[in-house]
């Protein structure tokens, strides 16, 4: 039973990635004018010769698709090269897309995972706290603040932060991954510099994101606090701290898992705007550069990488959820009570 759940989940993740690869393949061909005409015009500028064979070879070099081959062969070639990690070559940087991505991915993952942990950490703690003091001034105030902060788009806060703390006060850097003076590696200076550079993007996500999680957690906790098993546990003399963690916390956090999975996608997607504002060369930054420069191979490569990262994130979250909630992954629709 349990094994089949994991197998099923894995198959679904693989299938999703596969579907996205197919979508990118279709989209590349749909691009107005398409890569063919783009390459052709570039070549025309360079040499004036418009040799069809040469163009097709070049298009294949960039995009792994040879326009003169039958569709299914193109599709097959595209899938195999992506599966081998070959995402084509960036036209703008004239570098293999996979190399650019390999350098960029860790930074985006770093910013996103820290943001995710902080958003949910702060949201869950505050939500549980306000649930315990429901109706108090602290509760009402914090609820209002949560709603307000949640109504600010993250990029608006990002612009304000980069304007105030970056340009005007000069407290934080306005671009880059790390300072120029640190040596790459596991040394203190490097880590400190990385955190220093990532601080503002992380803050933009966390400050605008924790509010809704706090509200959700508050609602869940209030509901759980009204459950019979809380009353029975109190009568059994279970210490309040244990009730708060094992009973209220656990049962209130579980339903938030879905929200967390959605947040993974939301934050990774948001990296496009965020990294552009902070000039932070992660995956999103390159994707935006690629769009500005009509660099289709890079654009699609970045899209594919972001999607795969999100699918993986959700996959991991899903599997851990099965570990934490005993009711998950065992059919669900068979209720034995």
């Amino acid at each position: 039973m349990i094994n089949s759940y994991y197998v099923q989940r894995t198959a679904q993740a693989i299938f999703t990635v596969f579907a996205v690869i197919t979508i990118t393949f279709v989209l590349i061909r749909q691009i107005p004018g398409g890569p063919t005409s783009y390459v052709r015009s570039q070549l025309a500028q360079q040499s004036g010769s418009v040799d069809m064979e040469q163009i097709n070879t070049l298009v294949e070099a960039y995009t792994n698709v040879r326009p003169d081959e039958p569709l299914y062969v193109q599709y097959f070639n595209y899938i195999t090269s992506v599966a081998q990690g070959d995402l084509g070559t960036s036209m703008y940087y004239s570098t293999p897309v996979s190399e650019i991505m390999a350098a960029a991915v860790p930074w985006t993952v770093f910013v996103m995972s820290v943001s995710l942990v902080l958003t949910f950490g702060i949201g869950i703690s505050l939500g549980a706290l306000t649930a315990y003091v429901e109706g108090s001034r602290f509760d009402v105030g914090l609820t209002l603040i949560s709603i307000f902060l949640n109504s600010i788009p993250y990029y608006v806060l990002a612009i304000i932060l980069v304007y105030a703390l970056g340009y005007q006060l000069d407290w934080f850097p306005i671009g880059g991954l790390v300072g120029g003076d640190v040596t790459v590696g596991l040394n203190l200076g490097f880590i400190a510099s990385a955190i220093y550079h990532a601080a503002l993007p992380i803050a933009s996500f966390v400050v605008t994101g924790f509010g809704i999680q706090a509200l959700t957690m508050r609602g869940n906790s209030i509901r759980v606090l009204g459950e019979d098993y809380i009353r029975v546990a109190r009568l059994r003399g279970i210490p309040p701290s244990e009730i708060a963690l094992q009973y209220v916390g656990r049962n209130a956090i579980l339903p938030m898992y879905t929200g967390m999975m959605i947040s993974i996608g939301f934050m990774f997607g948001g990296s496009i705007i965020m990294e552009e504002i902070f000039a932070y060369p992660g995956v999103g930054y390159y994707m935006f550069r690629a769009i500005s420069a009509s660099d289709y191979p890079l654009m699609m490569g970045a899209f594919l990488i972001i999607t795969i990262a999100v699918v993986l994130g959700i996959f991991v979250a899903d599997l851990t959820y099965g570990k934490i909630d005993p009711r998950a992954g065992q059919g669900g629709n068979r209720e034995s009570y």
Binding site: D228, Y229, V232, A233, R250, N251
Partner: peptide, 10 residues
């Protein structure tokens, strides 16, 4: 309600 008297996650 025995069902609701137990913590469902332990």
């Amino acid at each position: 309600g025995a069902q609701s008297s137990f913590n469902p996650t332990t």
